[in-house]
C-alpha cells in the first residue's frame, strides 16, 4: 500500500503548483498507528504530509458537500463511488474535482488486529507486499493482510476507483465474488423472532452518538431527522425503540445510495455492526433494480426515479 504514497504526493504537488486545484483532501499519518487521519492541504510545500496505508478507512467524500472552489481528492474505489453519488445529488460538480484514484486491496480491520494482540498497545505497523507486521511491547506478528480485511472490503466488488483524473498506481484486479450478500441471506433465513432478537442485540450498546451518521458521506442534510423536534420523529433517548428507529431510518435514507464503504462501522466507538441495516437494503436494490450506488454520474439512484417496469411485487 505504501507504494502509492510517493505517487500521491507527486500528483498532489503538481496540481497544487499548477493551481489546478485550491486544496487537496487526503490522508496524513495519524498520531498513533492504525489511525490515519484526513487532512486538507492548500500549499504544495505541505504535500509531503500526504500518506496512504491500509488504515485509510475513512471516506473522504464526506468532506465534499457544499465545498466551493477546485478540489483535489484522494479516492479509493468506494470513495470514488460516493463522489459520483455526490455529483448526482448536486453536492459537488464534476468540474470542481480532480480525483486522484488509489487502487485498493482492502483496508485492514484495526479491531481485529487489536484483539489478536490481546488489545495491547500497538506501537508500530509495517506493511510489505501482501503482509502486515504489528509490533508492540513484547510482541510482534507478521500476518497476511488479506486475512485481516474489514468485512466490507472482503465483499468489495469495486476496488478500483470508478471515476478519476489520475491514478496513483496500476489498477488492481477486481474480484468476481459470485455472492456478495451471503451474510444478508444468513440473517434472512432466521425466524422472525430470532431476527428481532439478533437486531435488538446488535444495537443494544448504541449510545446514539451519531458517529456512524457523521462518518457517512451520504449524511449531508442541513438538519438530520434525529435532530428535528417539530414534529419529533424519534425520541432522543437510548430507549431500545428509539434506537431501533434511528438505525432503520438511517438505513432507509441510504437505500440505493450506500456504497458499503464501511466508514459508519469503523466510526462506531462501541463496535456495532451497523452495516447490517444498510446491507439489507443494498441487496434489495441490487436484486430488484440491478443497481449499485455510485457507478454512474448520469443516473439517479433507483429509488429516486420511477419507471413503469419497476419492481412492484411487494404490492399485494
Amino acid at each position: 500500500m505504501n507504494r502509492y504514497v510517493d505517487e500521491i504526493r507527486v500528483i498532489a504537488r503538481k496540481i497544487l503548483e499548477e493551481k489546478a486545484v485550491d486544496l487537496i483532501i487526503g490522508f496524513k499519518e495519524g498520531s498513533i498507528p492504525m489511525m490515519t487521519e484526513p487532512v486538507l492541504i492548500r500549499d504544495a510545500a505541505e504535500t509531503d504530509q500526504l500518506y496512504w496505508d491500509s488504515f485509510c478507512f475513512m471516506n473522504l467524500a464526506t468532506y465534499l458537500p457544499k465545498r466551493e472552489g477546485k478540489i483535489g481528492i484522494i479516492a479509493k474505489g468506494c470513495d470514488s463511488r460516493n463522489i459520483a453519488v455526490h455529483i448526482v445529488e448536486n453536492q459537488v460538480k464534476r468540474e470542481q474535482l480532480y480525483i486522484i484514484g488509489v487502487p485498493c486491496e482492502g483496508m485492514v480491520d484495526r479491531r481485529r488486529l487489536c484483539s489478536l494482540v490481546g488489545d495491547k498497545e500497538v506501537r508500530e505497523i509495517a506493511e510489505s507486499d501482501g503482509g502486515i507486521t504489528v509490533r508492540g511491547e513484547g510482541f510482534g506478528h507478521t500476518l497476511k493482510k488479506a486475512d485481516y480485511l474489514q468485512d466490507n472490503c472482503i465483499r468489495c466488488m469495486h476496488r478500483n476507483p470508478v471515476l478519476y483524473d489520475a491514478m496513483a498506481g496500476d489498477l488492481v484486479e477486481e474480484r468476481k465474488d459470485p455472492d456478495p450478500y451471503d451474510d444478508v441471506r444468513e440473517i434472512e433465513a432466521m425466524e422472525w423472532d430470532e431476527r428481532w432478537e439478533f437486531s435488538s442485540t446488535l444495537i443494544k450498546d448504541c449510545t446514539r452518538c451519531y458517529a456512524c451518521r457523521n462518518a457517512c458521506p451520504l449524511c449531508y442534510c442541513p438538519t438530520c431527522f434525529v435532530d428535528e423536534s417539530g414534529p419529533q420523529w424519534v425520541g432522543k433517548s437510548i430507549d431500545p425503540t428509539d434506537t431501533m428507529i434511528f438505525h432503520i431510518l438511517r438505513a432507509y435514507h441510504c437505500a440505493g445510495r450506500c456504497t458499503d464503504c464501511g466508514a459508519c462501522e469503523q466510526a462506531c466507538p462501541v463496535g456495532i455492526k451497523v452495516r447490517f441495516f444498510t446491507r439489507r437494503l443494498n441487496r434489495d436494490v441490487f436484486d430488484l433494480y440491478a443497481c449499485e450506488a455510485g457507478l454512474s454520474i448520469e443516473e439517479r439512484p433507483p429509488l429516486d426515479t420511477y419507471r413503469p417496469d419497476d419492481y412492484d411485487e411487494f404490492i399485494r
Binding site: V88, E89, Q91, C221, D304
Partner: peptide, 15 residues
C-alpha cells in the same frame, strides 16, 4: 429552503 440539501430527489421523483 433552510432545510433543503439540494440533493434533487424531489426533482427526480415527481411525476
Amino acid at each position: 429552503q433552510l432545510y433543503c440539501s439540494s440533493c434533487g430527489v424531489c426533482v427526480a421523483i415527481c411525476p
